[in-house]
Nucleic acid binder design. Structure first.
Lengths: 363, 363
DNA sequence: AGCCTCCTTGAAAGCGCTTTCTTTTTGGCG
DNA sequence: CGCCAAAAAGAAAGCGCTTTCAAGGAGGCT
């Protein structure tokens, strides 16, 4: 038994569905004995209409089962009540969390979300934004602060309100909501160095088209410099955010010489992969190797050992982006915090290094 | 430094952005020396226009940087080129994977996706669908085959094409794309029974508002019955899909008496939680306890032991839903397979039970 | 009492596009 | 060379709503 998509072709002639008589506002107005203008006002700005007529109109709408036509509305009012979100992907839970936060703020305001993913492909990102602009979104949330020239241009010429995310406000001339990756780096490095680590390795994400990774590496560099601890280039390895790839990256680190006493992962997915590979190899964490990440994903709490990490406000970033956009659209003020708070969560994956095996060169 | 959302209020008067002169099709037509009708045809149905004029119009559009107005388009043509997706959440990667699959098919066709999550709240689901219908989506993808009366009515009276997911086609009178949870259950039970297990426990999800969980439990029951193995009610425990909750559920199972020799988890998130709790308690998997799940999430391959699971076509479900909807909208045929294929992936978390500790009562 | 202002309501003009419906052009063929 | 059908282009009528704009009515104030 296979189900066919026969059904009336919508593309061809006029679309006219069975049992969908489509009530227009005009008819509602007639039913209520008022003009279309009044009916419209009841729906959009009730305070302009006396309670008397308001009730009549409301009664008529529900009686007739009126459903507004978004397109007509958008055309006449110049606002679509749709906000767009363009993110790299949804598999990385930091983005799906953020999107959930975003959407949850929109819903109560009667806004809906147009969503697109672009897999770190600049051209795809740009196409998505363009399509969204065509669809008439009232605002847009983007990830990161560096974009292709074309995208910049698109944004500027459309004049659409937009907000960037995952970077501190100062990172861009445009409104930006997020935390400072340098802060995250500092928290981690301070913790590790405080524990006595001097030989620290970094397993980063792919820096291409990802300014967050770049910022985090830069932050790491700065933090290490402050402690006068070297971070040679061969102590930094890049990887995709997939466990299998991360495990390979771990082996790459090993091939480069003796393992450092601590590994800083770009995020918790990476940290998880490192931990898993270490365990597979029988390397004891944290006794032989400390591992830290960023993000505080649900699962890392439950690993053995649980991961030390920096908790990041994934959900809040989305929610605040929504609040900002909504405020902006309605002409209200909204103060974007310079940076969102980050918190170091110390758990079992970090411990002082075994101070035995290596000359203690550094500073 | 705090960034303010000053900017011209869009809500108040006419929205007129600086540097956004907004080119209309009329102007493009003028530039190209043709009528607006012809320009429109070039954009929507190029074959109706001679190459000559077509080129002129195309040149004019790019010269003027024309961007179509989706609202006007939708109003005049009665199609929005937007498809809606309403899913429980995005934290469960089965849904984010599905959504990625969905969106990836849409993009090349010039369609965009309106997305809403409802957290297993029927009322919220219904509201989301209503809003999407107002926004004029051309089609809708839903999760599951049971909906509130109100939602059914909405769907019917709007006459919008829609497709349900995560159930086999036969599960509903409406088009449905997915696999059969009974099949998944059978694969798992057969495997476990084949290994020699007779005392099998189930850790399911919350059955409320989730027909997938109900179907899976029913499937489990049927499969066990076929093997003449009892599945008493106290061998079934429900849990939320959060690791901490799952671990609690594990303890609930323990409190109910001796642990079964195998535990069937509703999905891999649950299986993961069970594995983690077992390990925390020093219960050896699979020696003392076999654990299986459904979904084949990336991480479960990398656990120690790696999880035996049933691989489900998460991405395909989304992609096929998109294909179906797109076909339906353009009046083409699309054959929905009765059910999508499932594959048992046997890994290290299952083994024969230790046949020592219990009287072998059953059958 | 008279004038002016503010509050309600209705009439009607679009919003920017697609799509008939017509008109014009092209081309095939007797 | 002329006639007719078919193809290509244009004119214009909306799509369903919001929002001026104008009109009417109710008070408030001098």
């Amino acid at each position: 038994m296979t189900n066919k998509a026969s059904a009336p072709p919508l593309g061809g002639k006029r679309r006219r569905k069975i049992g969908a008589p489509k009530v227009r506002l005009e008819e509602v107005a007639q039913e209520a004995g008022v003009s279309a203008a009044t009916a419209s006002r009841v729906l959009n700005n009730p305070s302009l209409v006396t309670k008397d007529l308001r009730d009549k109109v409301l009664k008529a709408t529900s009686k007739l089962g009126y459903v507004a036509d978004g397109a007509a509305r958008a055309l006449a009012s110049r606002r679509s009540r749709v906000l767009g979100a363009v993110v790299p992907n949804l598999s990385n839970t930091i983005f799906s969390d953020m999107i959930e936060g975003f959407q949850q703020r929109l819903e109560p305001q009667g806004y809906t979300m147009l969503l697109a993913t672009f897999n770190y492909d600049e051209a795809a990102e740009c196409r998505s934004v363009r399509t969204m602009i065509e669809r008439g979104v009232d605002g847009l949330v983007l990830v990161g602060v560096t974009h292709s020239k074309e995208l910049e241009l698109l944004l500027k010429s459309s004049g659409i309100p937009f907000v960037q995310t995952w970077a501190p406000a100062r990172a861009s001339g445009h409104p930006t909501i997020g935390y400072d990756n340098a802060t995250a780096a500092r928290l981690l490095v301070d913790h590790l160095v405080g524990l006595g680590h001097r030989d620290i390795g970094v397993v980063a994400g792919l820096t291409q088209h990802n300014d967050r990774v770049r910022a985090r590496i830069a932050g790491l560099r700065a933090a290490m410099r402050r402690h006068r601890i070297p971070l040679p280039a061969d102590r930094i390895v890049q990887t995709e955010y997939r466990i299998a790839k991360v495990r390979e990256a771990f082996r790459v680190v090993q091939r480069k010489g003796e393992l450092p006493t601590a590994l800083i992962a770009n995020n918790d997915i990476v940290a998880l992969g490192l931990l898993l590979e270490a365990q597979a190899q029988g390397i004891r964490v944290p006794a032989q190797l400390s591992i830290v990440g960023v993000g505080d994903l649900e699962i890392v709490t439950h690993m053995k050992p649980p991961l030390t990490t920096v908790r990041s406000p994934k959900h809040t970033i989305g929610a605040m982006a929504a609040d900002y956009l909504l405020a902006r659209i309605s002409g209200h003020d909204f103060a974007i915090p310079e940076e969102l708070p980050l918190e170091l969560v110390v758990r079992g994956s970090t411990a002082p290094p075994r101070m035995t095996r290596r000359k203690d060169t550094s500073a």
